[in-house]
């Protein structure tokens, strides 16, 4: 596994894909600095809700998809799969290594989001206590919620050699998020909506209370992860190159 991770890192380190990581935090930063802040209520929580709406509703799921597609793209391009699969490494480990990279990249993205959040908060001198508990749950929960999606998008990217097709399908499937997140039935099951649902601060209900409990989300997240990850593993094992 370790050699595969190192090898993957060599392939991805000097690419332009990293700029994509700055996109969502940048937008969150601009919005956070310019939006009007309510006089009353917990301002830090309000900023978090707004930031999460921007970051997790669309950009985060798309980011996951783009990174998954990208990490397979250079293998598809000049059929490097063929060469990779004649190396003395197991194909399942190849999938796992790529998956770990995608998950790490998302973790970096989450951290950038929260750095921006603090940057905006302190610059504007927000009042009230920083809701550390929310923040931690939001940061970690958002990351965990992308894990099934990352497995799913990596699986798709593996099977489809077209970078554009993999992205397009994900864009189309991310769009309904705005409706799906409000649905009690589909919300927790829809992989593209899970990051948003897990990142948004619940209980106080500034954005309107959510019906979804953390417990039911975890079931959906773990279930989804297992299905998609095993699907991806099986698919790479059988892949004909």
């Amino acid at each position: 596994m370790k050699p595969l991770l190192k090898s993957e890192w060599i392939k991805i380190r000097n690419t332009k894909i990293w700029w994509l990581l700055t996109f969502s935090p940048l937008l969150v930063g601009i919005t956070g600095m310019t939006m009007p802040m309510p006089e009353e209520g917990p301002q830090w929580v309000f900023l978090l809700s707004t930031g999460v709406s921007i970051h997790a509703l669309l950009f985060l799921p798309l980011m996951v998809a783009v990174f998954s597609a990208y990490i397979c793209r250079y293998e598809h391009q000049h059929n490097a799969w063929k060469q990779l699969f004649t190396m003395p490494v197991s194909r399942r480990h190849v999938f796992m290594a790529k998956y770990v990279i995608v998950a790490l990249v998302i973790a970096v993205n989450q951290c950038l989001f929260f750095l921006t959040y603090f940057g905006v908060g302190f610059t504007r001198g927000l009042e009230g206590a920083i809701p550390w508990d929310y923040l931690f749950r939001s940061l970690a929960g958002g990351w965990v919620a992308t894990l099934p999606l990352a497995a799913l998008t990596l699986w798709v990217a593996l099977v489809w050699s077209s970078f554009a097709a993999a992205i397009t399908v994900n864009v189309i499937l991310t769009m309904p998020n705005m409706f799906v997140v409000n649905s009690e039935t589909f919300g927790p099951l829809y992989p593209w909506a899970q990051p948003f649902l897990m990142m948004l601060p619940q209980s106080e209900g500034i954005m309107g209370g959510f019906f979804v409990s953390v417990e039911s989300m975890m079931v959906a997240v773990i279930g989804g992860f297992l299905v998609f990850f095993i699907g991806g593993l099986t698919s790479i094992h059988r892949k004909v190159v």
């Binding site: 000097n14 690419t15 000049h78 190396m87």
Partner: peptide, 27 residues
Amino acid sequence: MGSLVESPSYYEHLSGRDNLEALRILL
């Protein structure tokens, strides 16, 4: 074993050396 099947496989965005380095680590 070493192999070269049909058209060569490579990562076009990497230098020749990095292409080999990505494989060397695996070997």
